[in-house]
Design a protein around this nucleic acid. Structure first.
Length: 867
DNA sequence: TCAAGAACGTA
DNA sequence: CGTACGTTCTTGAA
């Protein structure tokens, strides 16, 4: 068996989603995995006695020497692919599979040479390649395995009969056909208007290509002329697609006898590539066995043991080590399962169970869970507060790889244990396979927790224990509490907006003389750019943009009343839509209970869904009416809002150590006024509003990696002015620029960024040769430690406030977190105590070289409290 | 029915 | 050619 490693790995590269195949140190492995997976299947199925894999050395070959355009139209090989080839070759070396390459020679020539030599020596030869040129190698001794259209894993077998059936010619004639037809992917043009059908007809008629070219005069019509005009092309094609069968190789077929694999080497390289399921398959395919794997495989899924409440309680009481816990959540828990590494217990949840297990559940006895928050909430509803939360595999998995969607326990089990979590097929009414029971899930959770502990760097483990787990318990309480929202306020406003939107729409229809769906960008494009002939805006995938910024641009160049109507219509319908979705989210207790997704961001921030309460409008006076619908609830006196002012800028001052910026925050002067004075070289009192606006945009933009282009666009100033502004800024605050540069450099070096508290975020693209990818990664990497540190600080403040309020036996409670703002519901008589706690905890959440300034507001509703 | 794309709300 | 999110609507294909 001779294999074209390059072409098969390349197919695998595009077939497998890279996000599922990236190691912790950001090595992409999809091509390696895909190739090896196919390769072991082949070995198992075909059981070759002799084996080799050939690779191209580069794009350059004797063919490109001869015809520089050869394969010239192929897009550049992605570096993410190229980097995987040496590792794949390492894997093959560990498996004792000879890897053959030769400078200036393509893999298929090596295949051709070996298969020719092999069949001469009497071997049955299998050629595995994704290049159609290898069809010419097929004969009675040589069979081609070629990836079918259906997918890479399906290889189609081509013996002479199969070639005849598929292409209508004998294998040795295939290259003649290809020479006539041409090969687009190789940039080899053929005879115009000649496809497979015509080529086959001619060859059948004339017998050989030479004969055909000799007697091309006999062919009539346009194609005949085309043929005569392109005879040189055909000859060139035939020359280039003929595979070399006499490449000088250091080894011959006899040297390629299958050798025993180096089990340890395979284990090592697979461990590095984080392949787990592949290992046993390799050992299985080569008939070797792996002792480590044997022992792992012998750990069968333990039976779930149904037990009575009292038995579970006494069993739990006797456990010394961490126990994994799985509650099936509902309004209350419905079932409970617990597990150690060796023993499982489970039962239905009922009064008796709750009473029996309350002590253990509320104790400090260490517990590991997967996605604990819904379970904690269900327990809380049953009147039990979970204690001893020691691990959450969902959070740990996210902290380790924040960009990957390993959300379910099954995902983690697969990735970190290399095993399958039994899952029932939800598409079937009566599933054929049983899913894991609660105690079995707990058992998997415990083992996944152990695997994750091994992988989590210390600083990240600290983030989990000291920040995320306490935050989880706090969020559970916040979600349970919910926030009171007035249906009356919302519905009044909604009706008002609905009427307004309808009125604007009618006016707009009059303007343009017909009715369109104003919510359809497609229809709007017709109106704006075709009917009204307004100037084109930036391109989108589907045409031209009609977003707010674009509409403003058009309005500036060629004002039109329709643009104004459209903008107003958008504003009204957008607000109405938000209001409607909030209104439907109000539950029977007149409150909205959002869900905070703790693993929802790559930076460490929370996100909020169902509904999202972190994007309630605030910018315009009118939109703030929505916030006035968020009211203090029954039994409480007032709302307190507390927000960090310029927390990201403060973090940047701290991280950069820039003396000017630190002084700005310590001076008590308005930040932007202070910075403006420095940048424009005037006294703080002389900073005009225009100057302040520019400096403010500049300061905030810095945190995101803003460019002069972006700044000029946002401020609607000349790019040169924006550039000058940036130059001036960095002249005054040079340490900021130095820090930002150094921070990205360091991230490139180690492959990840880190927050003040040790939260990490990997950045594989920082060394991408693709400029767009790399520069995007650079901006994200610049922002990640800053946004992430701010998120850390807010989480620390949040759970401490939550814990303090409970410890002080206050009934006031935190309701919302909007990244740098908290909303607290304050009970009568508790204001002073609550405000003290909030100010203390927010102000003291981190020890920076600048103070953390906290603004506190008070009111009956959210809007009022914001002032 | 589903996914993609556009648009837009927040920090 | 500014980071991080979630939701809603339209559209076109399955």
């Amino acid at each position: 068996m001779v294999v074209d490693g390059h072409s098969l790995a390349y197919r695998a590269f595009f077939a497998l989603p890279v996000e599922n195949f990236t190691t912790r140190d950001n090595q992409h492995t999809n091509a390696i995995y895909g190739f090896l997976s196919m390769f072991v299947n082949l070995i198992k199925a075909e059981q070759p006695t002799h084996l080799a894999v050939a690779f191209d050395t580069s794009r350059h070959s004797f063919r490109t020497d001869e015809y520089p355009e050869y394969k010239a139209t192929r897009s550049e090989t992605p570096s993410e692919f190229r980097g995987q080839i040496p590792l794949l070759q390492d894997c093959l070396a560990a498996m004792s599979v000879p890897v053959l390459t030769k400078e200036g020679i393509e893999a298929d020539d090596i295949l051709a040479t070996l298969s020719t030599q092999g069949s001469a020596l009497g071997y049955d030869v299998l050629v595995v390649s994704g290049d159609r040129d290898t069809i010419q190698l097929v004969n009675d001794e040589v069979t081609l395995l070629y990836p079918s259209v259906q997918g890479v894993s399906q290889l189609k077998r081509y013996d002479p009969a199969a070639v005849q059936e598929r292409y209508g010619v004998r294998p040795e004639q295939y290259s003649d056909i290809a020479a006539l037809v041409g090969e687009t992917s190789d940039n080899l043009p053929g005879v115009p208007k000649v496809g497979e059908k015509t080529a086959v007809k001619w060859l059948t008629q004339f017998g050989t290509l030479d004969e055909l070219l000799e007697r091309s005069g006999e062919i009539k019509g346009v194609v005949g002329g085309n043929l005569r005009d392109h005879i040189d092309d055909v000859r060139r094609n035939r020359k280039l697609n003929r595979l070399l069968t006499d490449v000088e190789l250091p080894v011959g077929p006899a040297d390629l006898a299958v050798a025993p694999i180096d089990a340890q080497a395979v284990r090592d390289i697979f461990a590095r590539l984080e392949f787990r399921t592949l290992l046993p398959r390799v050992f299985d395919a080569v008939g070797a066995h792996d002792e480590d794997a044997e022992t792992a495989a012998s750990v069968d899924l333990p039976e779930a043991v149904q037990a009575a409440a009292a038995d579970i309680a006494s069993w739990l009481a006797s456990q010394q080590d961490e126990v994994a816990l799985t509650l099936v959540p509902g309004a209350r828990p419905t079932r409970i399962g617990v597990a150690t590494a060796t023993e499982l217990r489970e039962g239905d949840w009922n009064e008796e169970m709750a009473d029996a297990l309350r002590t253990w559940l509320e104790s400090d006895a260490p517990k590991a869970l997967h996605d604990a928050k819904p379970q904690v909430k269900a327990l809380t509803a049953a009147g039990i507060r979970l204690g001893g939360l020691a691990y959450d595999t969902s959070l740990a998995g996210w902290l380790l790889r924040p960009s990957f969607p390993d959300k379910t326990l099954g995902d983690l089990v697969e990735r970190y244990l290399g095993e399958k979590l039994p899952e029932s097929d939800p598409s079937q009414l009566v599933p054929e396979t049983d899913g894991a029971t609660p105690s079995q899930e707990a058992w998997f959770t415990l083992r996944t927790a152990h695997a994750l502990r091994d992988e989590l760097p210390e600083s990240v483990a600290t983030v989990l224990t000291d920040i995320e787990l306490p935050t989880l318990l706090t969020l559970a309480d916040m979600e349970t509490a919910g926030v009171a929202v007035s249906h009356e306020v919302l519905s009044t406003f909604s009706a008002e907006l609905g009427a307004r939107a309808e009125g604007i729409a009618q006016d707009a229809y009059v303007t343009i003389g017909r009715e369109v769906n104003l919510g359809s960008p497609k229809q709007l494009q017709e109106v704006l750019f075709e009917e009204l002939q307004l100037p084109k805006t930036r391109k989108t995938k589907t045409g031209y943009s009609t977003d707010a910024a674009s509409l403003a641009d058009i309005q500036e160049k060629s004002p039109h009343i329709f643009l104004e109507q459209l903008s107003q219509h958008r504003e009204a319908t957008k607000l109405r839509q938000i209001i409607e979705s909030l209104d439907t989210a109000i539950r029977d207790d007149h409150r909205i209970h959002t869900t905070y997704v703790q693993t929802g961001s790559q930076t460490g921030r929370l996100s909020s869904t169902d509904p999202n309460l972190q994007n309630i409008p605030v910018r315009t006076e009118e939109s703030r009416r929505i916030r006035s619908a968020f009211e203090v609830g029954e039994g409480y006196e007032t709302l307190l809002t507390a927000d960090y002012s310029q927390i990201e800028m403060r973090i940047m001052a701290h991280l950069s150590g820039d003396e000017g910026l630190i002084e700005a925050f310590n001076s008590g002067e308005d930040l932007h006024r202070f910075v403006g004075a420095r940048v424009f070289g005037v006294e703080p009192s002389e900073v005009t509003p225009a100057m302040r606006t520019k400096v403010k945009a500049m300061s905030y933009g810095l945190v995101y990696g803003l460019s002069a282009f972006g700044l000029s666009k946002q401020l609607r100033i000349e790019q040169s002015e924006a550039k000058g502004l940036m130059t001036e800024y960095f002249a005054r605050f040079g340490a900021v620029r130095d820090y930002l540069r150094a921070s990205v450099m360091a991230a490139k070096e180690v492959g990840y960024t880190e927050t003040i508290f040790g939260r990490r975020r990997p950045f594989p693209d920082l060394s991408s040769p693709n400029r767009v990818l790399r520069e995007n990664a650079e901006r994200a990497a610049l922002n990640a430690p800053i946004q992430g540190s701010a998120a850390d600080i807010m989480k620390i403040a949040l759970f401490r406030i939550h814990d303090d309020l409970r410890a002080a036996d206050l009934s006031s409670r935190v309701l919302l977190q909007i990244h740098d703002e908290l909303v607290v519901e304050v009970a009568a008589g508790e204001w002073d105590a609550v405000e003290g706690i909030v100010r203390d905890r927010m102000g003291g959440a981190a020890d920076l070289s600048v103070p953390l300034d906290v603004q506190v507001g008070r009111g009956r509703d959210w809007n009022e409290a914001a002032h």
